[in-house]
Amino acid sequence: MYNFEFNRPTDLSAAVDALRGDGAQALGGGQTLIPVLKQRLAAPTTLVDLTGIESLKGIRRMGDMLVIGGGTTHGAVAASGDVAAAIPGLVELASKIGDPQVRNRGTIGGSLANNDPAACYPAAALALGATIETNQRKIEADDFFQGLYATSLEEGEVITAVHFPIPTASTYQKFEQPASRFSLTSIFLAKMSDGSVRVGVTGAGADGVFRHEGLEQALGSNFSASAVDGVSVAAEGMSNDLHGTPEYRANLVKVMTKRAVEALS
């Protein structure tokens, strides 16, 4: 990889200052960014490592919200009793990301900021209607994801925490791509306290993570696997590669949604 200056601030304001520099880029756990750098697909002049900032780490319950610091590792989420009690689907999700080593380093903030179309966390953020808090503002998940690897984050903006409304039930059903073991098509299903159902789909969409309104409406009125059968999931807009055609991914959306419903029934 190209060389760069390595900056390891211990507080957020120093990190934000450092990120104002030309060619500066934030580094979370690095589990996605470092392979990209090895391929010389990015050439930052400064990497600002956020993992030394303690205030970005941690999990806490705040009323009907679960707040996870942007620098919290997948491993910490997977092992958290607080998360398991509040949003078990998030434990399922975090424990299925990558492998133990990736989970020990990778962070929720890094995952969301990268918005890989096959990453797991974006499905949960969308399905739960999370609020992404940065050093500058709060962004609703529905506004945050802007297509492949694109988010509404501005330059120098750092995800400090993710606020998840606590649903009445949740699950994550992952179907892996056979090589990368990222999501080929995975579903985060949440039953919200207002009775609504939200379905986040990752891995499938040609534009990245999305919510499936047809499934949400059908399940909102009849929470059963048979309700899924009646929904048409279009192949159009699904991505196409060696491991999945649009038709296959559309099928998986329904199959994995049904499995999610069964898991919660």
Binding site: F6, R8, L27, G30, Q31, I34, P35, K38, Q39, L47, D49, T51, G52, G75, D99, P100, Q101, V102, N104, R105, S180
Partner: peptide, 27 residues
Amino acid sequence: CDTSQCGACVVHVNGESVKSCTTFVSA
């Protein structure tokens, strides 16, 4: 490998396993 998948490089840092090919020493 160069995609952080093979794990031939796994070591422990502060008691946890990590991929040493996907960790900057400056951190």
